[in-house]
Design a protein around this nucleic acid. Sequence first.
DNA 1: TAGTTGATCGTCT
DNA 2: GACGATCAACTAA
Length: 198
Amino acid sequence: MRPLPRSFYLRPTLTVAKDLLGKYLVRKLGRELLIGRIVEVEAYLGTRDPASHAYRGRTKRNDVMFWAGGHLYVYFTYGMHFCANVVTGPDGIGEAVLLRAVEPVEGIERMTKNRLHGNLSVAGAQRNLTSGPAKLCEAFAIGRRENGTDLMHGEIMIAAAPGPKPRIASSKRIGIRAGTEFRWRFYIRNNTWVSRKN
DNA sequence: TAGTTGATCGTCT
DNA sequence: GACGATCAACTAA
């Protein structure tokens, strides 16, 4: 499995966001391989988007958002959770796509163990494993250390996946106060692993 | 089923 | 000193 090339991420952020749906998120963890099919994302458009971490300019926290496309921006929130973004566009613009949910494809046992070690419970069904931005980070063991990871290097990457292009739906973004007028959440229609129905 | 709340801490004001 | 790109447990009806 090979990572998508840098050029994939250097395109307009909304294009990349929709194009990420159906792709594989791949994590090499020692000898184990974790794979999830991306089913839900949100776009954050840098300094022109009031909901974006980059809205008020470059800081120590959001610095990675301003790197060139194809890096991973991981942030800590609510005192306990991590969320992962794919940086998009050329160097210096501060745009990214939040990974909100994936469908587990491979390494489900490892993901379950990772979830048990974290803050969140895996209560009940397997559909709770990766159906939210903090849940998928816990399952894939993505935390502070992974902030700034280059997705070209292979440790964490996004790869092409088999199958037809998924049917895409859009909605308002979740959990934000400003910028609610934009429908920049994209997800695969009728997919069980999407974080909530809409 | 919808709505509310506690947990918990780094970052920015 | 306030609050968040969350989640799960709880309450009410």
